[in-house]
Design a protein around this nucleic acid. Structure first.
Length: 776
DNA sequence: GTAGGGTTAG
């Protein structure tokens, strides 16, 4: 037991000065009112009366003393006070001292009273508990006062100097309050100073909360570990679980990172102690796991919590279902649905929404409609699978129908939803249908629906805008798209990064680079949303157009905006610089990729190999190929194509043919049309037409489709050798393969066939092509 | 639940 040092007044004087006296009648009465209204759940908040004193006696004493202490401190009647409190041999009860102190309203006044008591209570047995209670009350008062931060800790230091032990409520109050105002170190000092025997669950929970909120993860885990000890004073309870989980699941949390797996470990440990995450936290955990592609972990934790006896609700299952949907894992989706039924967890409208969505996304629209009928028809009411479908489910189905070209059915479903209460079509419904009709080229219906939605008072969104802009662009109506954007902006729908991406890409595609750049500038000027994609599309457009300086300046802007290039963008840029023969820039890009940690892929390597092959630097090309293989990448048909092309240009046809033959046998990368074309073209030019023809036969055997370029290359060779009959043969084959002759085909054949008086054959060929085209 | 992008061989 502590002995009280009662020469405290010289210490406490200075503390008194720290406490701004601001007691007034109104404040006290407000405080009293709030005190009576407060429902403190803490069972220890109010000290018990002493066994030999009834609460009734206590109450009388409290009232009398509080009455007596109404005037200012300097006017207190100490004789009467002494009489009331100390005429009895026993010290006043902790409960009475607590209430008296607290009802003094201001901490300065309360502290004065406390000093008086501590100086006078010395001889009474068991006075420590009473003083602790009084001190607790001072803390409670100080906590409510402005600028309480330092006051609280100063009070604590005072108590420590005077050897007044904290009671559990006072300790919890200090830890929580100090933690709340960011005085974490101080809060932890209070906690660590405490006798371990005093640290109950409530207090440990408060400390863990402070530790986790301030980033002291390991300190918190240490305390938690003690609480898992079955012999421990303060064992974990539901509140511990809530505090630990909610803190660790926060997205932005100070302190060292703590993996989801580790959180799962804690959940299981809590589970063994009969503490389960509530539905919201379990759902949050599963969502977090799913976000980081840890589907198996998510699956396990949900099932473990079920197994351990936790109360799992549909929401948590829905989170996992969403995750399984992404991987098209129908098997486990079904398994989970079965488990839900087994555990009597009723699927809700979201559950069905997820399943219907996943069916739609995998184009199993009829199964989705079947499920929709099943749940809305009430056929299985007894089965607990009856729900009113909501707007989301209707929209999902309408979108699903539109995506497989069944717009008309989508439209009918919209009419059906109008008949159901609370299911009126909304912006999303119209967006899906507008996109559906636009994507099949029915702009008229798209526009009609757009006007219809406005008539019906359903406001178009930026997605509506983008859907329409995309449609206009795809049909080459770029200026209409710009007009539409301006019109919508006037009506208050601002374009976003998606809008600009669509427009910029489209203008680049028609080689209107200046308009693309202007749109980009406009977007930056307007200060609306941007993202990396819009930068990527402009960089790509500029690179394709050979405008590498402009592309580089967009790259700089991208970096200024704190985005970074991705693999494809690097490939685009490397390709652009290769085409411009800027080898130094190519190396710069490759180096930058490496330092940015973006691993080159086979396209990067193919681009470089092609570049060197074309530049006649076959050795360098082969060296890069070796590096590619060393990096574990597999050469593709494009890789071999580049090499074959290089040897063909070299005049080394044999080597080219050797690689070609090895492709099918050794490398298991079957040659494709382009490779055949290169070889056929080369062989024909070298007058090895027979060999070229044999390659065409070889194509047929291997099931590689010839295209227009194949026949063009061949016709050139046949023409050189005047192999007319062969030409007729392949003209028929071209029609059979539905290969459209292009201007090159026509140039070769027109010149040749007119010269040899076979214009009739040419006429029939063109006719045959037209027939083939019309039946196609 | 709905909208946008970019790459390599002839």
């Amino acid at each position: 037991m502590n002995t009280l040092s009662l020469s405290a007044s010289k210490h406490s004087k200075s503390f008194l000065n720290l406490l701004k006296p601001h007691t007034s009648k109104t404040q006290s009465s407000i405080f009293l009112l709030s005190h009576h209204l407060s429902t403190d759940p803490d069972p220890e908040a109010e000290p018990n009366p002493k066994p030999n004193q009834s609460p009734k006696d206590d109450d009388l004493l409290i009232t009398q003393v509080v009455e007596l202490l109404q005037p200012n401190e300097k006017d207190w009647n100490f004789d009467q006070l002494h009489h009331l409190l100390f005429s009895n041999s026993a010290a006043p009860s902790p409960r009475s001292l607590f209430h008296i102190t607290r009802r003094l309203g201001a901490s300065s006044k309360a502290l004065k009273f406390f000093e008086y008591v501590s100086e006078n209570v010395a001889s009474a047995p068991d006075s420590t508990a009473s003083l602790s209670s009084s001190f607790q009350a001072i803390l409670e008062l100080a906590k409510r006062e402005p600028t309480s931060q330092n006051k609280l800790y100063d009070l604590y230091k005072m108590a420590k100097e005077q050897n007044i032990p904290l009671n559990i409520s006072a300790a919890a109050l200090l830890v929580r309050s100090l933690g709340m105002v960011g005085m974490v170190d101080e809060a932890l000092i209070v906690f660590n100073d405490l006798d371990p025997g005093l640290k109950n669950t409530h207090l440990r929970n408060a400390a863990i909360d402070v530790m986790l909120k301030s980033g002291c993860v390991d300190d918190a885990l240490k305390v938690l570990d003690e609480m898992f000890d079955p012999k421990a004073e303060g064992r974990v309870d539901q509140v511990t679980g809530d505090i630990v989980l909610s803190n660790l699941l926060k997205r932005e949390r100070p302190g060292r990172s703590f993996s989801e797996e580790d959180i799962v470990g804690l959940v299981l440990k809590f589970g063994e102690h009969g503490v389960y995450p509530d539905s919201m936290k379990l759902t949050k955990l599963i969502t977090a796991l799913c976000r980081n592609r840890k589907t198996n972990k998510a699956w396990d934790v949900l099932h473990d919590v079920m197994r351990l006896g936790g109360d799992v609700k549909a929401a948590s299952c829905n989170a996992l279902l969403t995750c399984l949907t992404r991987g098209n894992d129908f098997k486990r989706m079904n398994e989970l649905m079965v488990k839900m039924k087994e555990m009597d967890i009723h699927p809700d409208v979201v559950t069905f929404g997820i399943v219907i969505n996943s069916l739609c996304k995998s184009r199993r629209i009829d199964e989705a409609l079947e499920l929709f009928e099943k749940i809305s028809g009430g056929r299985e009411k007894s089965d607990g699978v009856s729900t009113e479908p909501d707007v989301v489910i209707y929209n999902t189905l309408i979108d699903g129908l539109c995506k497989v070209g069944r717009q008309e059915e989508g439209l009918r479903l919209m009419e059906k939803m109008r008949l159901q209460n609370g299911c009126a079509p909304n912006t999303v419904t119209y967006n899906c249908l507008i996109d559906g009709f636009n994507k099949v080229g029915d702009i008229e219906r798209g526009c009609e629906l757009f006007h219809q939605m406005k008539e019906k008072g359903i406001t178009p969104s930026v997605i509506t805008l983008n859907t329409m802009v995309d449609c206009l662009c795809k049909h080459g109506r770029l200026n209409s798209a710009i007009d539409f954007l301006n019109e919508m902006q006037r009506d208050g729908v601002q374009g976003n990064a998606v809008t600009y991406t669509t427009l910029i890409t489209s203008f680049c595609n028609v080689n209107n680079i200046s308009m693309a750049m202007e749109l980009f500038e406009q977007m930056l000027r307007d200060g609306g949303s941007t993202d990396a994609i819009v930068y990527y599309s402009l960089i790509s457009g500029l690179s394709q157009a050979g405008r590498m300086d402009d592309a580089s300046s967009v790259v700089s802007k991208l970096k200024e905006a704190c985005f970074s290039l991705d693999l494809v963008s690097y490939n685009v840029l490397i390709n652009g610089f290769c085409k411009k023969n800027k080898l130094d820039k190519v190396y710069e890009m490759v180096q930058e990729m490496e330092s940015a940690g973006v691993k080159p892929d086979s396209i990067t390597y193919n681009t470089l190999i092609s570049y060197f092959c074309k530049a006649g630097e076959l050795t360098t090309g082969r060296r890069i190929l070796s590096k590619m293989i060393n990096e574990g990448l597999v050469p593709t048909a494009v890789t071999f194509g580049a090499l074959i092309h290089a040897y063909c240009l070299n005049g080394n046809t044999d080597k080219a043919m050797k690689i070609f033959r090895e492709m099918g046998s050794k490398s298991k990368v079957p040659p494709n049309t382009v490779i055949y074309n290169i070889l056929i073209d080369t062989l024909c030019k070298k007058n090895e037409v027979e060999l070229a023809i044999s390659l065409i036969d070889n194509m047929k055997d291997k099931g590689v489709r010839p295209n227009t370029a194949t026949f063009n290359a061949l016709f050139k060779g046949l023409k050189e050798n005047n192999l007319l009959e062969k030409a007729f043969e392949f003209m028929d084959q071209m029609i059979e393969h539905a290969c459209n002759p292009d201007y090159i085909t026509m140039e070769i054949l027109t010149e040749w066939l007119s010269a040899v008086g076979e214009t009739e054959k040419l006429r029939r060929f063109v006719q045959g092509y037209e027939v083939a085209a019309s039946t196609a």
